[in-house]
């Protein structure tokens, strides 16, 4: 499974949706993922790829890690997997 598919699967599970319903341009808010769900998704992604994501729930939009859309999250994970490999 590609990084993209794996991330979408994790987000879909958190949102209780089918992976096909999670499009790259969707925001987590649109998918119905709240702040706790976001923290859980970040944890699940870290576990799946064995990486550390610089994410602080107090400033979700201002860190190094862009969570503004599913595509942005996937791009961020791809970068971290490269850097932390």
């Amino acid at each position: 499974m590609s990084i993209r598919d794996k991330v979408i699967a994790i987000i879909a599970e958190q949102a209780v949706l089918e992976p096909s319903d999670v499009t790259p341009d969707s925001t987590l808010e649109e998918l119905g993922i709240n702040s706790l769900g976001l923290v859980e998704s970040i944890f699940a992604i870290e576990e799946a790829f064995d990486i550390t994501i610089p994410f602080n729930a107090n400033a979700p939009g201002t860190g190094d890690f862009d969570i503004s859309s599913v595509a942005a999250i996937i791009a961020g994970i791809e970068r971290l997997v490269r850097e932390q490999a």
Binding site: V39, N56, A57, N58, A59
Partner: peptide, 17 residues
Amino acid sequence: RVMSRDACRPFSANRNG
């Protein structure tokens, strides 16, 4: 993910946990 790595700055706009 609610802890600050540098300081506790209550009520300050740049607080981070």
